[in-house]
């Protein structure tokens, strides 16, 4: 169970730190804590892995990365971890997850995401992915996104 103050802190900064000289002091004021405690808590949460990273989150679509594809493989269970870790090493891969298969309609268990500047480039990267990770033998599919209806980070709340 997450510490309630850690949770309050994450809720307070999840939509972004204020862009001011002393952002942690502003957050500290909101939570009635000391600035130094905010910094220490965030350092610990990063170290513990609950915060995967703390930093600038770019809008890649606005910055020219308009083509976004979800690539999915049907990977034997005993290979999936090794292949997933291998795929994650490639510079153009943004996410790589194991998810359950759902019968004949959805036989895929390994998911990764490629964000590229064009469809052509993403398809080239897919070829590169398949070659460099030796994925030729496994069924796959590529799902380009065509319209974005909503995009924002996860929003957490303290209680409901």
């Amino acid at each position: 169970m997450i510490d309630p103050i850690d949770l309050q802190l994450i809720v307070a900064i999840q939509e972004g730190l204020p862009i001011v000289a002393r952002p942690y002091k502003i957050i500290a004021g909101q939570l009635d804590l000391e600035e130094q405690e905010i910094i220490e808590r965030l350092s610990r949460l990063k170290q513990q892995g609950l915060i995967k990273r703390l930093g600038v989150i770019v809008k890649h679509r606005r910055l020219g990365y308009q083509s976004n594809a979800m690539v999915v493989f049907d990977m034997p269970d005993k290979l999936v971890k090794q292949k997933g870790e291998q795929i994650s090493q490639l510079a153009f891969i943004n996410l790589c997850y194991l998810r359950p298969r759902r019968g004949e309609l959805w036989p895929y268990n390994l998911f990764c995401m490629i964000h590229g500047k064009s469809r052509e480039l993403v398809l080239q990267q897919l070829t590169q992915l398949i070659d460099s990770c030796a994925l030729n033998d496994y069924p796959y599919d590529i799902l380009f996104s065509t319209r974005c209806f909503k995009q924002r980070g996860a929003i957490y709340s303290i209680d409901k």
């Binding site: 995967k52 990273r53 930093g55 600038v56 770019v58 890649h60 679509r61 606005r62 910055l63 020219g64 990365y65 308009q66 971890k81 997933g84 870790e85 795929i87 994650s88 510079a91 891969i93 943004n94 996410l95 790589c96 997850y97 194991l98 998810r99 359950p100 759902r102 959805w106 998911f111 990764c112 964000h115 500047k117 974005c148 209806f149 909503k150 995009q151």
Partner: peptide
């Protein structure tokens, strides 16, 4: 399709910002 395992270590998104043409479409 819940997440069962995460293989990716998130290091951010390295942008190649040469020959950049920015999009006007906003989600």
């Amino acid at each position: 399709l819940p997440l069962l395992e995460d293989y990716f270590i998130n290091l951010g998104f390295q942008l190649d910002l040469e020959d950049n043409h920015q999009s006007e479409s906003v989600c």
